[in-house]
């Protein structure tokens, strides 16, 4: 059953729904003398989510063959982008907007193209970050972080 890759996601959703319902149950009884309690609605939502997840699993089990997905670009660029955003957020306060953003924009340009012409791409990154600084800091009055606080 679990060899079918199409089943992994609906099963994960079912696990999430069950986890949510269990957390909702821990909030207490759904109906009290004064009326409905804060656990009533989450229980309803959890039950509906379990129903839809189960329907999805049934649908996948009945499907004769997995439908072809559109071809993806090779590599794991999306995972690198998630990592780049994560590191950028971590560095944002510590290194400040200018340094962290320049490295981030340069990394994104490289991830969406290649490592060719790095000097040109670094220059583009600097220009983009500079324009962003003017827009956020001066045009919209946003206080961007700096390494000195």
């Amino acid at each position: 059953m679990f060899s079918n890759r199409q089943l992994i996601f609906p099963t994960a959703m079912l696990a999430l729904s069950v986890g949510y319902l269990v957390s909702a149950l821990s909030l207490g009884t759904p109906i009290a003398e004064s009326g409905l309690t804060p656990s009533f609605f989450p229980m309803l939502v959890g039950a509906a989510a379990i129903l839809f997840s189960s329907l999805l699993i049934l649908q996948q089990l009945r499907a004769p063959e997995a439908p072809d997905r559109p071809r993806d670009a090779p590599g794991h660029a999306h995972l690198w982008i998630v990592l780049a955003i994560f590191l950028y957020i971590l560095a944002f306060r510590t290194l400040g907007y200018l340094v962290s953003s320049t490295a981030f924009v340069f990394a994104l340009i490289v991830l969406f193209s290649s490592f060719e012409k790095p000097a040109q791409k670094a220059l583009i990154a600097l220009v983009v970050v500079g324009l962003g600084y003017v827009m956020f800091q001066h045009l919209f009055g946003v206080r961007l972080p700096t390494p000195w606080g």
């Binding site: 982008i81 955003i85 950028y88 957020i89 944002f92 907007y97 953003s101 981030f104 924009v105 994104l108 340009i109 490289v110 969406f112 193209s113 791409k121 583009i124 990154a125 983009v128 970050v129 962003g132 956020f136 919209f140 946003v142 961007l144």
Partner: peptide
């Protein structure tokens, strides 16, 4: 250029959520 465009979008999105 898509590489520059997406880099700009990513910058605006992440910094925008900080604003």
């Amino acid at each position: 250029r898509k590489d520059v465009l997406y880099a700009v979008i990513a910058l605006l999105a992440v910094v925008g959520s900080y604003v």
